Amino acid sequence: MGAGKPLIIVHGLFGSADNWFSIARELEKNFTLYLVDQRNHGDSPHTADWTYADMAEDLRELMSDEGISTANFMGHSMGGKTVMTLALKHPGLVDKLIVADIAPRFYPIHHQRILEGLNAIPVNDLKSRKEAEDILAQYIQTPGIRQFLLKSLGRGDNGGFKWKVNLPVITEKIANVGEAMDANAHFDKPTLFMGGENSDYILETDKKDIEQLFPSSHLIYIKNAGHWLHAEQPAAVIETVRSFLNKT
């Protein structure tokens, strides 16, 4: 959607392209927006291969298919690591980089409870979305998180339910999501790390790694926002993104 320099936006774990639709609507006057479903998410193909190298190559293939020579990129959480991987491996493809609430370091597995809840839902025998939410509520107390996760519960061709996410592969390979970026690589072009003020994903101790891998970067925090900063403070995110990308 939109017109102008390409901006490719990449969602996080258990998410999909439509997580960023309202943000994109506000940016389409200035940029051509490409909202991506990463592999094993949304409407994109399911595959047993699921690493940041794989997902970065998916973006490179997308650019080739769309005839895009260079683009700006923004990624949230897992998507942030995908766009970091692309920038570090193929810096010539990336003009400016925005990383939303994730650092380049290793993160230990911390999604076990979510995976337990999703795997407890008998998707093939499910009668209603309400049944799925009732089961998930036994594992996830926050209604907003449950609603976000259940966006990945779609309808199959036979009228029943199916997961849009590749739940078996994500469950098996969840450790891949915490993988650190290549410490021997670097991306010298303008980079913005945008953290949530109330989130613990980007810590003070992460600044050294960020500056080493992304020497032309700066870090800001969005006030009154947690990890889902684009959902909690959309106006601030939109203004921050627009200002950064328009800066010469």
Rank of each mutant, 00 (worst) to 15 (best):
M55F: 08
V99E: 10
H11C: 03
P215T: 03
Q212C: 07
E211V: 12
T191Q: 09
A87K: 03
K151T: 10
I140H: 04
N184D: 15
M1C: 08
T82L: 08
E57S: 13
S128H: 06
K173P: 06
A137E: 11
D182C: 06
D206M: 07
N198L: 15
M78S: 06
H186A: 13
E28S: 07
L245C: 04
F148K: 10
A48Y: 10
P234D: 05
A103R: 07
Y107L: 06
E232V: 01
I210A: 10
R113H: 13
N166W: 02
L203K: 15
V165H: 09
Y107N: 06
T248L: 13
P6L: 03
I174V: 14
S69F: 09
D58F: 01
G144C: 04
V94W: 04
V123A: 05
E239A: 13
P91W: 07
S243P: 01
E61Y: 06
I174D: 07
G80Q: 02
A100W: 00
L136Y: 08
V99C: 11
K208S: 13
D188E: 15
K189V: 00
D54L: 12
I9V: 09
V94M: 10
G156S: 11
D125S: 15
N184V: 00
H186P: 02
A17M: 06
A185P: 05
N30T: 01
D37S: 08
E66I: 00
N176I: 00
F161P: 06
R113D: 12
K89V: 02
K173L: 13
T82K: 11
F161M: 04
H186K: 15
M74G: 09
P234T: 02
K5L: 09
L93S: 10
Y139K: 04
D58A: 07
I135G: 09
T51K: 09
A180P: 15
A137F: 05
M63G: 04
Q212H: 14
R155N: 14
V241R: 08
G15W: 03
H41S: 13
L35C: 04
T82G: 11
E204P: 05
R105W: 02
G75V: 07
I23T: 05
L136I: 00
N246M: 12
S152Q: 15
K89F: 03
